[in-house]
């Protein structure tokens, strides 16, 4: 469903992302070394990845690449160098239309 905006409340990120178009690749273009995440105190990726690709499950970080918007933020903010980052191949990934 597309997100109606008149409701004066914050939408869920899933609903907002639902308006975007991806051709999701079959292999991840980003890999995260979770061992390093365990040592990471601030875990800035959780709050700063605009697509919320990084989530906390208990106190473990879980990364899923499917909704990635390819901004590069996680690569830059990660203090532990845990993010092996690149762009998707063969035209896959996010397909912006109105930005």
């Amino acid at each position: 469903m597309s997100t109606k905006v008149e409701e004066k409340k914050i939408q869920r990120i899933e609903d907002i992302l639902n308006n975007d178009v991806w051709d999701v690749d079959y292999e991840p273009h980003i890999k995260v070394d979770y061992n390093k995440c365990r040592e990471c105190k601030w875990k800035p990726c959780i709050r700063l990845c605009p697509a919320e690709c990084y989530t906390l499950v208990g106190d473990e970080v879980l990364f899923s690449y499917e909704g990635c918007l390819e901004c590069g933020t996680c690569r830059v903010v990660c203090p532990e160098n845990a993010v092996e980052w690149s762009y998707p191949k063969s035209g896959r990934g996010i397909h912006y239309r109105f930005s």
Binding site: M1, S2, T3, K4, N19, V21, W22, D23, H95, R97
Partner: peptide, 21 residues
């Protein structure tokens, strides 16, 4: 059409096709 992202217009109940690659 990339149907992973075919949305329904909440007002009209019809498919939003605009700009779907």
């Amino acid at each position: 059409p990339n149907t992973t992202s075919v949305n329904i217009d909440p007002k009209t109940g019809t498919l939003i096709r605009e700009g779907i690659p």
